[in-house]
Computed example of a mutant assay.
Amino acid sequence: MPGGSAGRTGIALTDRQRLAWLRLIRSDNVGPTTFRGLINHFGSAEAALDALPELSRRGGATRSVRIASRADAERELESAARHGAVFIGIGEPDYPPALRQIDGAPPLIAVKGNLSTLTKPSVGIVGSRNASISGAKFAAMIARDAGRAGYVITSGLARGIDTAAHRASVDTGTIAVLAGGLDRPYPPENLGLLDDITDGSGLSVSEMPFGWEPRARDFPRRNRLIAGISLGVVVVEAAERSGSLITARMAADFGRLVFAVPGSPLDPRCHGTNNLLKEGAIITTGSDDVLSALAPLSQLDLFSPPIIEEPVKDSDMMPPDDDARGNIINALGPTPVEVDDIIRHTELPASNVYLILLELDLAGRLHRHSGGMVSLDY
């Protein structure tokens, strides 16, 4: 039975903190990285909310930043309660330990179902919506065997391979990651399956607001969560351009294992998986290929420092001057650069650099890239 020592680490948010966290992450131009930076600098979400208008003004915003109101956040919390869901913060014990490790992990996730599923080691299974019979049967076999071995199965509730993986692991535990709000599941034909998941040993997860209808550009965000929650991702069937390949590449970027099932070169649904094998994915012809590779990872301590609200000194709150701001803006351009390079180039204190980047971000002038790189939006 796989297990890890970090499944229940963390500190619970108070109701007041949870409300402030929800307001902050729902405010304009506040993504996961900016959220963490604001908490680190100001010590709490409430203090960060108070500072948003001035920060965006200093960053050069041409209009006032929209801050999620207390009433809006309270309504979303009420919607969650009506649907039997809760919000879990990144520093809380029930937050998925593997997800907490990735860059830009969502500060808050909405979940519905059996919370104990979140802290168990997970394997992702993804693939073609237009799955073959053999592909669906293979995905179900992997899901059943991994479930019996103690793993939770994570997938995206899509047609085809996702559906087969979820159905085969309803009894042992499965996580359905949604691209829209928890109250806007997609596709509609899987509503019954989703009820089976959340009423049994599994749960549904989303970082999007309640009422959010999923759009095409929201599915890569969902795929990122699948990759982040999982210790490894199995791709059963995937065309050359598919969301499953996005999930696989994100998993590789996170240092997770990527498994690919070989298929006929004549079947377009296998072109993507065959290419993954050429790129170094683990060839997968049976469940043992997955379980033997995952076994060492499932014993790792997945602890990483959570976001914790702590008071900050008044001396740390002093804003940088216009010369420092100008130096950083001049150093930036459309080409992504590392923050450490900005610090070395400008010779400014790291705290000043990070704060000015927050200002530019909140003003909508900064673009954040994978690997912690940034560029200036013109």
Rank of each mutant, 00 (worst) to 15 (best):
T62L: 08
H367A: 13
L355R: 14
R144H: 15
Y186N: 03
T154S: 13
G113L: 04
T172K: 04
A136R: 12
D321V: 03
F87S: 02
S132W: 01
L203D: 11
A281V: 11
E213T: 14
V235P: 03
D195H: 02
R58P: 09
E46Q: 11
N114K: 13
D183H: 12
I102V: 12
T154A: 13
R241A: 11
E213W: 03
T9K: 03
A47C: 14
A260K: 11
N40F: 04
D15T: 06
V233S: 07
A48F: 03
R58G: 13
G372K: 08
G10H: 05
E46L: 05
V235S: 04
R167N: 11
S292L: 10
D183G: 11
S244E: 02
A350L: 13
I342M: 06
M141Q: 15
H41G: 06
H369W: 15
F254K: 06
L193W: 09
R167Q: 14
V123C: 15
E309W: 04
D28I: 01
R224C: 04
D267W: 06
S155G: 11
R70S: 14
E78V: 11
G147A: 06
R144S: 15
A227W: 00
A350G: 15
D361Y: 00
G89I: 01
P2I: 12
V234L: 05
L294D: 06
Y354M: 14
R70E: 15
F35N: 00
D103I: 01
G10S: 13
R57D: 10
S244P: 08
V339H: 07
H367P: 00
D196G: 06
V170Q: 10
A149Y: 12
R344I: 08
G180T: 10
M208S: 05
R215H: 14
G173M: 05
P349R: 08
I133C: 10
D289L: 08
D321F: 01
N275G: 08
V261Y: 01
K313D: 15
L194V: 11
G372C: 07
A146G: 12
S122A: 15
L360N: 00
E338D: 10
A158N: 06
L99Q: 02
G43V: 06
D199E: 13
D15Q: 13
G91S: 09
L13F: 13
T247A: 06
P214G: 02
V290G: 00
D145A: 13
V261M: 13
R215F: 15
R36T: 09
A85S: 10
A48E: 04
A350H: 15
L332Q: 07
D171N: 15
G263P: 07
A105T: 01
A51Q: 14
N223G: 08
Y186L: 01
H367Y: 10
V126C: 03
A131N: 02
S230Q: 07
S298A: 15
R241Y: 01
D289C: 12
E92M: 07
P106H: 03
T117F: 10
R256L: 08
M373T: 14
I328Y: 03
R63E: 10
S315H: 14
D377F: 06
I109G: 05
D162E: 01
R58S: 15
L225K: 02
R8L: 15
G371V: 02
